[in-house]
Each structure stands twice: as C-alpha cells, then as structure tokens.
C-alpha cells in the first residue's frame, strides 16, 4: 500500500516539474519527487513482521527479524543531498528574482 502511495507521490512530483513555471513551485515539485523516491526505496527493504534495525533493551539480540537497514542508510544519504539541492535551487531562485524581478520563468527576459 505504502509503495503505491510512494509511486503516486513520485508521479505528482514529475507532473509538477513538467507543468509549473514558478521557480519556487518547481523546487517544491522536486522535493515531492524526492520524498516519493525515498519512501519507495525504504519500502523495498521492508520485511513483513520486521522491527526497526536498532538493538534496544527490549529487542536485544541480532537473531530477531529486522527490516533491511541498507536502504535506510542509503536514503539518509539521499535526504542530505536533497537538502543540498533544495538550498542551492532556492538560492538560485532568489538570485533570479533579484536580477529579473519575477519568479516566473516565462516572464524572465534577457538583459
């Protein structure tokens, strides 16, 4: 179920990237796309009945059934890189606004 949901999020993100003209909305669409992808990668590592891959005083041996920790570690990387991309994209959008006076890509004219 959550896998269908992640694919729907992914498609919404691509649709936003294709149709929007406003730079901030483009960044938002990029983030939705990225979240969909991250949820999908995590869902691939789900083991039915598995618990979070952390040893605690309750779940105290490695012999229990855990979900796959590898996709989670990779998604951690992906989230951080997403933050970097978002920051850079927003800075570019701000700079474009300062130069052209608009956030709309169609209204920008060369100077």
């Amino acid at each position: 179920m959550i896998q269908y949901f992640s694919i729907v999020l992914l498609l919404i993100g691509i649709y936003g990237l294709l149709t929007q003209k406003h730079t901030i909305r483009l960044v938002a669409a990029l983030n939705i796309f990225e979240i969909g992808l991250n949820v999908f990668i995590i869902s691939v590592g789900y083991v039915r009945g598995g618990i979070a891959p952390i040893l605690t005083s309750q779940a105290n041996t490695s012999a229990l059934l855990y979900v796959d920790p590898l996709p989670q570690a990779l998604v951690l990387t992906s989230i951080v890189i997403g933050v970097g991309i978002t920051a850079l994209a927003l800075a570019l959008a701000r700079r474009m606004y300062k130069t052209y006076g608009t956030y709309n890509l169609d209204e920008m004219e060369g100077k």
């Binding site: 891959p53 040893l55 605690t56 105290n60 041996t61 920790p69 990387t77």
Partner: peptide, 23 residues
C-alpha cells in the same frame, strides 16, 4: 555469533543502531 544488547563486547563496529553502523 548472535549480538546481545548490553552483553556482547568488542563486536565489529560496536554500534547498537545498525543504520549508524552502516553509515
């Protein structure tokens, strides 16, 4: 062998959080 919380010593990487031990 099986890793036991609070008992096993000198395990590889030694972290209780497996995601952290990978990252």
């Amino acid at each position: 062998d099986v890793v036991v919380y609070g008992e096993s010593t000198d395990e590889e990487s030694g972290s209780a959080n497996m995601v952290t031990s990978i990252v």
